[in-house]
Write a protein that binds this DNA or RNA. Structure first.
Lengths: 166, 166
DNA sequence: CAAGTGGGTTGCCAAAAGGAACGGTCCGGA
DNA sequence: TCCGGACCGTTCCTTTTGGCAACCCACTTG
């Protein structure tokens, strides 16, 4: 079956996030929302996604509080969907996805969408910084630890692991 | 069915990235790889994913150069899979996904996995910084522009749009 | 030599995506 | 007033996938 995919039992923030935005098309719906798209037909035109699928995605995004429906016409009832604060917080995810694709899929070829950092005028080359010490974080300085004494299914990893090496 | 999903025609780095890592389970496979998992049986135990699906995911991740197979036994041929540099570059994506889930799904409850910034000792509160000016980037300082004169399918958005408002 | 382990492949079934058609309500023009 | 079209879905049917279990092959250990 497709995607009954029980990520959910993993008690992991990454899995939990994927539970919300991991369905096919969902992140592209959100990407377009950041570009100002807010109506059914706009998404449908841009993505070419099946209408029933789009309807389902919008519904679950609303349920999860990522999008908020706003009635802009009663009779016929029509609503548009705008990003909530929770949804806008996904910008960091989109930024890192974009950066990876720009670097590793498109080399230096044009990639259709460009992110620009307004305050410095350059196209954005995003890095992860630490909210506490404000330093740029290198991959090897991050430690992924299995929190506390939480018995998780396949606890095969005894030691902590560094994330990346760059 | 599902996921014939032609993201591909979108000429967008985000869509391109999702083409590689957007399948169900794929990001969890990569998450575990960062935690040191490198063998079929380990992933299978931890994720509970169907074996055929796991085999398919590993294959495409290798094809895309995210994982590299390494033969650790000839006869019987057995290989393990390790992250390439390209794969390790996905750490930023995992970090932002994790942060979003920790903040918006788990509130302050324990989330199973914790990311710690070794150099300052705190648990990581990731921010996006600009590689050029080294400043922390606020969402509203990012402009998503449709690059150059690339005619993309549903070009309904005349103006540029700010990303987020935080 | 029998049982176990590691790493898959094969086949069947159910769930999700694709796709096209339809329905309802308004609007603008002929 | 009648006709077509825009919008926003919903329904129905088809096509792919993922879930699941069984199976297989090549060692290895008891």
């Amino acid at each position: 079956m497709g995607r009954t995919a029980d990520y959910s039992k993993q008690s992991c923030s990454i899995a939990a996030t994927l539970e919300v935005i991991g369905d096919p098309w969902t992140l592209l719906v959100i990407r377009d929302a950041f570009q100002g798209v807010s109506r059914f037909e706009q998404w449908q035109d841009r993505l070419g996604v099946a209408r029933n699928v789009l309807a389902a995605r919008l519904k679950t995004l609303v349920q999860h509080g990522v999008l908020e429906p706003r009635l802009y016409s009663e009779r016929p009832p029509r609503n548009e969907y705008v990003l909530t604060a929770k949804g806008k917080d996904l910008s960091a995810v989109l930024v890192t996805l974009h950066a990876w694709g720009a670097k590793h899929v498109y080399g230096d070829t044009d990639s259709g969408i460009d992110l620009v950092h307004k305050t410095c005028g350059h196209s954005l080359d995003p890095r992860i910084a630490c909210g506490h010490c404000s330093e740029i974080v290198k991959g090897r300085d991050i430690v992924m630890t299995r929190a506390a004494n939480r018995p998780t299914v396949g606890d095969v990893m005894p030691r902590d692991a560094a994330v990346g090496e760059d």
